[in-house]
Design a protein around this nucleic acid. Structure first.
Length: 444
RNA sequence: GGUGCGGUGGCGGAGAGGCUACGCAGCGGAUUGCAAAUCCGUCUACACCAGUUCAAAUCUGGUCCGCACCUCCA
């Protein structure tokens, strides 16, 4: 069963052929750590985590890298405003990012390179590009000269001609061509800076990915992933830098891009302010990170999908059912359903895979359900049904006491009192569940 | 203006020429002191107009609508 991937580079669904089946190399663009990640930022994380899980099932070794952008103007703004070094900002939000993503049951990538650790590599790559006449220096800045590259624009389907047509006014005079982009720029005194042959400054934002890939993997990797909005200019420019410094060698054989998460039909983004952070969401749905994950995977990764709390509640119900179906069951990789695998191998068709999980639950194939769900990062929470100790000021023991009183009332056939206790607790968000074994409670 | 993506039942969301998923919600029933859960049954659909075909949600052409990228953004 072979994996098929929709490759942005060709616009087609292709069979995945690794350059070295003994070591699959995948790189995904990670966060700029200046603020909490929003739920839209979590989508590529969940999507590529799922892909990596599948690759690890298929191949003996997979190396997964995701970068941390810790040099950026937005970080500098924050640091300046709070009057702290940028590392204080970046360390804080890197930690939050990784913790929040872990709650959605994403595994940490094998390599998590930071931009600030790659300055020597970035400077070296700029030198190579200048030497090969793909870049030029002007007034302390170094720019990549876009027309110096044949086939620029292959990934995003743009030609140099298109770029000329789409030119906007207000282009800095220093540029030879308006689409030329920054490789190095000077810093002011209060901005963080590094020593370089072109004076003190900092790197352009596309450069880190090219260098991290080169240093960790070499010239060509198998899969490069990220959000749709990175196709242009970020990934296009990454390709330009890497190909031009590597004699034209392909940077990545397969490019995968996830679609947007929308809120009421609009793109969720920090600039629009219509975002919900993962950090807040996991507080709102404590212990239900998998429900958020299920939500994010219930649409195909290339389709846009709308975010809603109702969707999370639905996902939670579905997971409740699955968790009940696999109680006391153990499973191994051999139990993974071929249908689930088949769906995932078809360009990561997670909605179809989820449907197959539902079928397994329905027909009582518990071991198969467990193994297949775990492959996708579900049914991994041993405490799924465990609720918080305290809800709305009521402690667990107070609730237990009320349950005892209600049981007594029930024994006396005092249904009025029994119902009153149920309804009172219900009003406070606590649901009582009667069963043969006794009464338990859960948060509504 | 250029480029790309999409419009499927109340909602979410697969499928991609004939077998019309699945989930949530709804409705009917079983069960239950009540409630939940569970089980059984069940109703709604392929934006529009032409065309190809024995057969189209699926292919072709056109129309309308929505979204995104072209500037920092997952």
């Amino acid at each position: 069963m072979s994996l098929k991937i929709h490759n942005t580079l060709t616009g087609k669904k292709e069979e995945f052929k690794p350059s070295d089946p003994k070591d699959i190399k995948i790189y995904v663009c990670g966060p700029t750590v200046y603020d909490f990640a929003h739920i839209g930022n979590a989508r590529p994380v969940v999507v590529f985590d799922t892909l990596v899980r599948l690759l690890r099932h298929d191949y003996e070794k997979v190396t997964y890298a995701r970068n941390i952008t810790d040099i950026d103007d937005k970080i500098m703004e924050r640091a300046l405003k709070k009057n702290v070094p940028i590392s204080e900002i970046t360390e804080k939000y890197t930690k939050h990012y990784e913790e929040d993503m872990a709650v959605l049951n994403n595994k940490l990538p094998d390599i998590r390179p930071k931009a600030t650790d790659y300055l020597p590599s970035m400077i070296k790559m700029i030198e190579v590009l200048i030497e090969k006449d793909h870049a030029y220096e002007i007034e302390g800045q170094v720019l990549f000269h876009v027309p110096s590259m044949e086939n620029y624009g292959e990934l995003s389907g743009r030609s140099i001609e298109d770029l000329k047509a789409g030119a906007r006014v207000d282009v800095g005079d220093y540029k030879k061509f308006h689409a030329d982009f920054i490789l190095w720029k000077p810093s002011t005194d209060e901005q963080p800076s590094w020593e370089s042959p072109w004076g003190r400054g900092r790197p352009g934002w596309h450069l880190e990915c090219s260098c991290m890939i080169e240093d960790n993997f070499g010239e060509t990797i198998d899969i490069h992933g990220g959000g749709l909005d990175l196709i242009f200019p970020h990934h296009e420019n990454e390709i330009a830098q890497s190909r031009c410094s590597h004699g034209g060698k392909e940077l990545a054989n397969y490019w995968m891009h996830n679609g947007y998460l929308t809120v009421e039909g609009e793109k969720m983004s920090k600039s629009l302010g219509n975002y919900v952070t993962v950090h807040d969401l996991i507080k709102e749905f404590p212990n239900k990170g998998e429900a958020i994950r299920l939500c994010l995977l219930s649409a195909h990764y290339r389709q846009p999908t709308d975010f809603s709390r109702e969707g999370i509640r639905q996902a939670e119900k579905q997971l409740n059912r699955w968790y009940k179906a696999v109680e006391g069951v153990s499973a191994s990789d051999k139990d993974i359903s071929p249908k689930v695998l088949g769906a995932l191998h078809d360009d990561l068709n997670t909605p179809k895979a989820i449907m197959e999980l539902g079928q397994l639950a329905k027909e009582g194939s518990a071991a198969s359900l467990l193994a297949s769900a775990q492959l996708m990062g579900f049914l991994d929470n041993k405490d799924w049904f465990k609720e918080l100790d305290e809800i709305n000021g009521l402690s667990a023991s107070e609730i237990e006491a009320l349950i005892v009183r209600r049981s007594e009332a029930k024994a006396n056939k005092d249904w009025t009192l029994a119902d009153k206790i149920r309804n009172d607790l219900e009003d406070q968000g606590i649901a009582l569940l009667d069963s043969a074994a006794g009464t338990s409670w859960t948060k509504k």
